[in-house]
Amino acid sequence: MAAIEAEGLRKEYGDVIALDGVDLRAEEGSVLGVLGPNGAGKTTTVRILTTLLRPDGGSARVHGLDVVRDAARLRGEIGLTGQNAAVDEALTGQENLILFGRLYGLRRGAAKERAGELLERFALSAAASRLVGTYSGGMRRRLDLAAALVARPPVLFLDEPTTGLDPRSRISLWETIEARVAAGTTVLLTTQYLDEAERLADRIVVIDHGKVIAEGTGAELKDRVGGDRLEIELGDLGQVGAASAALAELAIAPTTLHDGILRVAVAPADGTLVQALRRLDAAGVAVDDLSLHRPTLDDVFLTLTGHSAQDAAADAEEDA
């Protein structure tokens, strides 16, 4: 059963088309990654699905409830973590969670108990009675996520949950999200980080300029790029010809040389690296470094849109 279903979502701001017919579907208990650069329409999609914004066209149901007609009931079934850590800095961590719990309709005692559980689980017990204004970025994000989980919502929306976090905090947040999913929660996660989508999402939709431009599992999207990539740093660039010749039998596309690195597209197969090294050695080519790269989602983005995700993000920021 689909926990999140959207068909033809449209949203316009004056002349700007933020969403141009977005279709989404996430099965219950799965993680849907929505991947795209800044300004692609990810946040607008989340706002519509969490009842914050009315779509100009199309329809969506979350947990079987229509996001427009059943908005009031739906709010009790979802948790939202936005791009900013939306917690009150002038309250303590515990006060924040109790406030949100009570606004979800829990009684005082139940809200307090739930706050305690969540603070414990998110390793914030020691900081429970400190003002959130004194928390580090990672602690705020954890509290923000805890706030979204107060009512044990069956569907969780995470809008760029790790933007601006240090690597350690990111990994710890990923583990928390994975634990929620293991407990049966459906998650929609937006991100501009390709590794984040790969790690967490069962299925990924790629959005650019308000449209879904690709959809599939991480592996399916990678297949679109085709093949793995050998990267060889030669000791002597005079040997480029010899190296290309030695690897000709492995290559599935013409080799390229860029910034002193020879790139050879190869079919995905076991033992490619060893074979390549043997052939180069037999041809007497001196190799400084040799590595095999699986395509990343950045490669996918480049293939799909003709520009890299980072470039698109930079464009979007210039437009803004």
Binding site: R47, T50, T51, L52, A72, R73, R75, G76, I78, L80, G82, Q83, N84, A85, A86, V87, D88, E89, F100, L103, Y104, G105, A147
Partner: peptide
């Protein structure tokens, strides 16, 4: 600015509160 209004509006609380 901090997104708290968004959070409040996403909660099943009274809209006037």
């Amino acid at each position: 600015r901090k997104g708290l209004i968004d959070r409040f509006r996403s909660l099943p609380m009274s809209r006037s509160a």
